[in-house]
């Protein structure tokens, strides 16, 4: 079953396109990582899916229904982000009690155990919590709700490494026990990639890549060695990333559609072949220029001397 279907989802603010035709489908019970740089449109997309924003055009379906202003979507979905606003007049325990009333699958035993584990006190107020504690509490809310669609938008903001680690662990364990569809957006792909099944890479308001994480590792390849030699091999390929090493050497990242034979030949010709880590690849893919920040610096230099 498809939990989310999006066809040409577009969101326009004034004249700027926050989302520019997002098309993808997400199957039931998968953990999908939403990756993209700041301003790529991740949050906007997630909020449209959550029914908080209304798409400008395109067709969005969550549980086969339009999400905006939809009670079914709202009842089966929970959206957790760091801007989460919870009633200021209720303390943490009371908020959990309210959540229990609203969510059919609410797991109060899990909520209480996590609450104790992270040493939150019931009499505290959400607005008085530190950023990390807020995120921790939101996470407890998100997991305990056991919603068929659980959306975490940057859930680990402000958490320290230990809590982040715990969060990923508990999320996975709970997912194993109660499989559900989880969307997880994060800046730290390296931290979450093992948890993910699929990855959805957003760039400039469009879906750039949507594939299993396992495939992402083999999707691209890094070559390094003599400039001329490399240029020979990658002539016909799209280069995602390029970095000069010294005068004559070059490191490039290209799409890996070489045959095994070709790869052997590349190695034999004296080039080094590297796998590219997922997070590096995502960074390269979402960069505006091939050379990244180096280009900015080099351009300034070349402008000066020309």
């Amino acid at each position: 079953m498809k939990v989310i279907e999006s066809k040409e989802m577009t969101k326009v603010y004034g004249k700027t396109y926050a989302l520019n035709g997002i098309t993808f489908e997400i199957e039931e019970n998968k953990i999908t990582g939403i990756i993209g740089r700041n301003g790529a449109g991740k949050t906007t997309m997630l909020k449209i899916i959550a029914g908080l924003f209304k798409e400008t055009s395109g067709e969005v379906r969550v549980f086969s229904e339009k999400p905006f202003n939809n009670l079914t979507v709202s009842a089966n979905m929970i959206f957790i982000d760091d801007g989460m606003i919870l009633p200021a007049s209720l303390n943490l325990k009371e908020i959990l009690d309210e959540a229990e009333r609203f969510y059919e699958n609410w797991d109060s035993s899990l909520a209480n155990r996590l609450f104790d584990y992270f040493s939150l006190s019931p009499n505290q107020y959400h607005s008085n919590l530190s950023k990390g504690m807020k995120s921790t509490f939101n996470m407890i809310l998100g997991l305990s709700a056991k919603c068929p669609l659980t959306i975490f938008d940057e859930p680990t903001t402000g958490m320290d490494a230990g809590v982040r680690h715990d969060f990923y662990r508990v999320m996975l364990k709970d997912y194993l026990a109660y499989p559900r569809t989880i969307l997880l957006s994060s800046h730290h792909l390296e931290e979450i990639e093992d948890l993910l099944e699929d990855i959805l890479l957003i760039k400039d308001g469009r879906v750039h890549l949507h594939l299993p994480v396992a495939d992402l590792k083999e999707w691209a390849i890094g070559l390094s060695g003599k400039k001329d030699l490399i240029n020979e091999w990658v002539k016909t390929k799209k280069v995602f990333h390029e970095k000069s090493i010294g005068h004559n050497n070059l490191y490039v990242v290209v799409k890996n559609d070489f045959t095994i034979r070709e790869l052997e030949n590349i190695t034999l010709s004296g080039l080094d072949v590297f796998p590219v880590s997922s997070s590096d690849l995502c960074m390269y893919l979402t960069q505006k220029t091939k050379g990244g920040i180096d280009d900015v610096y080099n351009k300034a230099k070349s402008d000066k001397y020309s």
Partner: peptide, 17 residues
Amino acid sequence: QYQLAEIFNINPATAAK
């Protein structure tokens, strides 16, 4: 695959692979 996912803290789909 679920036991592996639990042991290594990875997605069960990866373990299945």
